[in-house]
Simulated assay, not measured.
Amino acid sequence: MNKINLQGLLSNQALFRHISPFELDALQKEVVKLELDKGLTLFQKGDLADGSYIVVYGLMKLGIPSSHGNDKVLELIRPGQSFGEAMLFLDEPYPFYAEALEPTLLLRLPKNALFRLLEQSPLIAKQMMAGLSSRLLGFMRDVERHSLQNAKQRVIDYLLQVSGIQGTANIRLELKKNLVASLLNLSPETLSRVLHQLVDDDLIQVSGSHIRITCPESLKVYQHSEALNFRQTPENLMKNNATARHFI
C-alpha cells in the first residue's frame, strides 16, 4: 500500500481524525497494514500483546478457546473499532484469540508508537479512553442481558441489534448459529428452539443464514411482553447471581 492510501485510511479513522499533519505523517511510518483471509487467526490466547489493531473492513471475532471445541465468543469487532489496547496498558498477554470471520483489513499500531502518540496528543488519549469506556459499558450491558433476560429476549435483542447495524429487516447472520448461541450465552439447541418459536409466531422468516424480520415493531412489542412475563422468582434470581459472578 502506498503512502497516500495509508494516510487516507488513517485520517478516516475516528481515533486519528483530529491529529495534526505532522503527527499523521509520523504515524503512518509505523503503522502496518495486515490483510487476513476468512478463518485466519491474528493471534492466539497467551501471545504477547505488542500492538493494537483497527478494523478497516471485515469482521473480527474475539473468543476464548475450549478443549471441548465450544469456544466462547466474547465480542465482534467491526469496521472503525479497535482492540488490543487494554492488554498494552496492563502489559499482559492476550486473554483471548482473534480470528477473521470475513476477509479483513487491519491497521496495526505498535505498542511504542501508540504510547508515544498518547503522550503527544491529549485529544487522542481522551478518544481512546472513550473507546475503552464504551466497550466496558458494552460488557456490562452483556452481563445485564445475560443475567436479567430470558432466552427469547436475548435472541430478539440480537436480531434487532444486527438489523440496526445492517440497516435492513432482511439480515444476514454474521456468525454460524452455534457461535451466535455462544455470544448470547445460550446452547445451540435453545437458540434453534427460540428461532422456531419466532417463526411459528410469524415474527421472523429463516432461510439458512438469512433472517427476515417481518415487522420490527411487532418484534419489539413481543420482546417487551417477554420482559413483563419474566418474573424474578427465587430460581431465576439464583441463576442471575451465578451468571453475574461468572462474568465478573
Results as ranks from 00 to 15, higher is better:
residue 5 N to Q: 13
residue 5 N to P: 10
residue 5 N to E: 13
residue 7 Q to Y: 09
residue 10 L to C: 01
residue 10 L to W: 00
residue 14 A to N: 10
residue 14 A to W: 14
residue 14 A to Q: 12
residue 16 F to P: 02
residue 17 R to L: 12
residue 21 P to L: 02
residue 24 L to K: 05
residue 25 D to Y: 05
residue 26 A to H: 07
residue 30 E to G: 06
residue 31 V to A: 02
residue 31 V to H: 01
residue 32 V to G: 04
residue 34 L to T: 14
residue 36 L to N: 07
residue 37 D to H: 15
residue 42 L to A: 09
residue 43 F to G: 07
residue 47 D to A: 08
residue 51 G to I: 05
residue 52 S to A: 15
residue 52 S to G: 15
residue 54 I to G: 03
residue 61 K to V: 14
residue 64 I to E: 02
residue 66 S to D: 02
residue 66 S to R: 01
residue 67 S to C: 00
residue 70 N to I: 01
residue 70 N to V: 06
residue 72 K to P: 00
residue 73 V to C: 04
residue 74 L to Y: 03
residue 75 E to W: 14
residue 77 I to L: 08
residue 78 R to G: 11
residue 81 Q to I: 07
residue 81 Q to S: 13
residue 82 S to A: 15
residue 83 F to Q: 01
residue 84 G to M: 06
residue 88 L to C: 03
residue 89 F to I: 05
residue 90 L to Y: 09
residue 93 P to Y: 07
residue 96 F to N: 09
residue 100 A to H: 04
residue 100 A to W: 07
residue 105 L to M: 10
residue 107 L to Q: 02
residue 107 L to K: 00
residue 111 K to I: 06
residue 113 A to I: 07
residue 113 A to F: 03
residue 117 L to N: 03
residue 118 L to M: 08
residue 121 S to P: 02
residue 122 P to G: 07
residue 122 P to Q: 11
residue 123 L to K: 12
residue 129 M to R: 13
residue 135 R to F: 06
residue 138 G to A: 11
residue 139 F to G: 10
residue 140 M to V: 15
residue 140 M to C: 14
residue 143 V to L: 11
residue 151 A to Q: 01
residue 152 K to I: 07
residue 153 Q to L: 00
residue 153 Q to A: 01
residue 156 I to Y: 02
residue 157 D to A: 05
residue 158 Y to E: 00
residue 158 Y to P: 03
residue 161 Q to H: 11
residue 162 V to Y: 08
residue 162 V to G: 06
residue 171 I to Y: 11
residue 174 E to P: 12
residue 178 N to L: 03
residue 179 L to N: 15
residue 180 V to K: 03
residue 184 L to Q: 01
residue 187 S to I: 02
residue 188 P to H: 07
residue 188 P to D: 08
residue 189 E to R: 14
residue 193 R to W: 02
residue 193 R to Q: 10
residue 193 R to K: 11
residue 196 H to S: 09
residue 199 V to Q: 13
residue 199 V to W: 01
residue 200 D to S: 09
residue 200 D to M: 06
residue 204 I to C: 01
residue 208 G to I: 04
residue 208 G to R: 00
residue 209 S to Q: 12
residue 214 T to K: 06
residue 219 L to E: 00
residue 219 L to Q: 00
residue 219 L to S: 00
residue 220 K to C: 08
residue 221 V to S: 04
residue 222 Y to R: 01
residue 222 Y to L: 02
residue 227 A to S: 13
residue 227 A to H: 09
residue 230 F to R: 05
residue 232 Q to L: 09
residue 235 E to Q: 13
residue 236 N to K: 08
residue 237 L to N: 02
residue 237 L to G: 03
residue 238 M to G: 02
residue 240 N to E: 14
residue 240 N to M: 14
residue 242 A to R: 07
residue 242 A to I: 08
residue 242 A to C: 05
residue 245 R to P: 01
residue 247 F to D: 10
